[in-house]
Simulated assay, not measured.
Amino acid sequence: MKLLRVGPVGAERPALLDADGALRDLSGLVRDIDGALLADEAALARVRAAAGAGVLPVLDAAGERIGPPVAGIGKVVCIGLNYHDHARETGAAIPEEPIIFMKAPDTVVGPNDTVLVPRGGVKTDWEAELAIVIGGTARYLETDAQALAAVAGYAVAHDVTERAFQLERGGQWDKGKNCETFNPLGPWLVTADEVPDPQALGIRLWVNGEPKQDGTTADQIFPVAEVVRYVSQFMTLYPGDVINTGTPAGVAMGQPEPKPFLRAGDVVELEIDGLGRQRQELKNA
């Protein structure tokens, strides 16, 4: 299933994108697309049955905003330097274990919402990423099978980063990762049953129409199952939590000088096979 939320900020309605590309209203069946729903197998089964029976009403949402596909996110866990080609372009050693950092849930915005260049930001960078959405409580998982069983689905994420804040201002990476609007998510949450191999997804990004990233999740150093299992050794993952799994080569930081960091007025578009497409215009905060 392709689950999404449409409407103004704070007033999004749950919806489903059917096989014909029509939006279907889920508000008569579920309160929202959130951790409680993703952990409720019976509720998800009712949604699947209603979708299959063709009884869900059409949702007239032409021109409406698409919100993040998950409400009430508890935490956003991020994996740094998780593609071989990205490590090569930045001259970094291949990590022996996943690099973990966090983004605040309030960085999450809709897939087409405005992204704000922070005040004082001079090296705002793009990072197209595969996001994992957790569907079951995960703690101290032991096997890849257990890890994949905890995954509700996948989405497109844009891990926007201010490199000067991240790397030149001391402290940890969080300074450059947690500016407002720095985690567009969506347009859809695609349930795991529709993504048979999360390590076989093309991932692409353009800036002002110019291709910048063109990679594949097959190049991940630590694949999805290993990431979920590993993270569960250090923190409990709850339904509705999100894990951004890293970005392939092609970020501004890896380009020759002068590096083409983002500025107000730039337009970023990104997509992952089967998971949809995002488009953001940048403005100054």
Rank of each mutant, 00 (worst) to 15 (best):
76 V>R: 03
127 E>Y: 03
45 A>G: 14
63 G>H: 11
215 G>S: 07
92 A>R: 15
271 E>L: 10
58 V>I: 12
26 L>M: 04
76 V>N: 01
240 G>I: 04
282 L>V: 02
183 N>E: 00
35 G>L: 03
120 G>R: 15
41 E>P: 09
149 A>P: 11
195 V>Y: 13
242 V>T: 07
273 D>P: 02
17 L>N: 08
192 A>P: 06
84 H>N: 03
41 E>Y: 05
210 E>G: 05
158 H>E: 10
170 G>R: 13
218 A>M: 01
41 E>M: 02
143 T>L: 12
139 R>A: 02
27 S>V: 00
116 L>G: 04
76 V>D: 00
29 L>G: 10
223 P>D: 03
130 L>D: 04
158 H>G: 04
55 V>R: 15
222 F>L: 06
266 D>A: 06
28 G>A: 11
36 A>N: 08
144 D>N: 14
203 I>G: 12
94 I>R: 15
91 G>P: 14
177 K>Q: 09
193 D>W: 11
169 R>I: 00
187 P>A: 08
141 L>T: 00
40 D>L: 06
12 E>V: 12
202 G>E: 04
67 G>A: 15
234 F>L: 14
52 G>M: 09
176 G>T: 04
225 A>L: 09
267 V>N: 14
38 L>C: 08
268 V>T: 08
115 V>S: 10
274 G>R: 10
107 T>G: 12
258 P>D: 05
172 Q>K: 10
115 V>F: 12
136 G>Y: 04
271 E>Y: 11
79 I>M: 08
152 A>L: 06
199 Q>R: 13
45 A>N: 13
165 F>S: 09
186 G>W: 00
261 F>V: 00
115 V>H: 13
